[in-house]
Amino acid sequence: MHQLLVECPSIYEMLPNIDFDWKKKPEIQVWRKQSKDGETSVELESYDPGASVNLFEEALKSNELSYNGKTVPLPFNSAILKWAAGTREIINKTQVPNGISFYNIYGTSFDTPFDVCYGSESSPINELSEICHSNPEYSFVDGDGTVPTESSKADNLDPVERIGVRGSHRGLLNNDEVFEHIQNWLGVSPKNKKHSKTSKVMDVHFSRPVEEKNCSQY
């Protein structure tokens, strides 16, 4: 988490959309050590997309970056989060102009991280700040290894065609099947098949079963 804040501030724009109608909302789970009345217990806390902001604020409140002999505070930045929310709102309202055909090709068949879990029942987290430098466990869903299929298909732009291709996030850029679809849509394929303006939206999903792991088991 600390590294992402330093190297990828756009992470704020990639947080789960709290307004999206997920089949199952992604969660952050944390095994926490609790002490009460002199007794210690371990509990599994869960944070959905809406509650995760509170988790980030608490975990990063004392986060710092050491640079050139100086220490720079690097807490969770609510201002950037607000800008990111504004950007997302604009994107959600965006529509393809009349006369423009939109197509969506998305990657499938790769295990893609979805839920994340910090700590374990046998080795719980004491302070939330510890998760900044902890290696979590993930549960996985179908996708391109980076973006879940459910998210990739949610373009909200009424495409002429929406096609799933077995391929990784970057691998799609060098995928023969992807180029064949593009050539076909442009009317330059060997068979010279041109798409019709009345084409129906189509979901073609080539996938293999993906084993989903329950984070709470770790």
Rank of each mutant, 00 (worst) to 15 (best):
M1W: 10
M1N: 09
L4P: 03
V6P: 04
S10K: 15
E13W: 14
E13G: 15
F20Q: 06
D21T: 10
W22V: 08
W22L: 11
K23H: 09
K24T: 15
G38A: 13
E39R: 14
T40C: 08
V42C: 11
V42A: 14
V42G: 12
E43S: 12
E43Y: 10
L44R: 09
E45D: 14
Y47E: 14
G50Y: 07
G50L: 05
F56T: 05
E58H: 03
L60N: 00
K61C: 03
E64F: 00
L65H: 01
K70G: 00
P73K: 11
P75V: 07
N77E: 01
N77S: 02
A79F: 07
K82L: 14
A84K: 02
A85F: 13
T87D: 05
N92P: 02
Q95F: 14
G99S: 15
Y103E: 02
N104G: 05
I105Q: 01
I105C: 04
Y106F: 15
G107E: 03
G107V: 04
S109D: 05
D115Y: 04
D115M: 04
D115E: 05
V116D: 01
V116T: 12
V116E: 01
G119K: 04
S122A: 07
P124A: 05
I125M: 00
L128I: 03
L128E: 01
C132A: 13
T146F: 11
V147S: 07
V147E: 08
T149H: 04
S151C: 11
S152W: 07
K153H: 07
D155E: 12
P159I: 06
R162A: 06
V165Y: 02
R166M: 07
G167R: 04
R170H: 08
N174R: 09
N175Q: 05
V178E: 06
V178W: 02
H181A: 07
Q183T: 06
Q183E: 11
V188R: 01
S189E: 02
S189A: 04
K194W: 04
K194C: 08
K200G: 08
M202G: 06
V204R: 12
H205N: 13
H205Y: 10
F206Y: 10
R208V: 13
E211H: 07
E212F: 08
K213A: 06
Q217T: 12
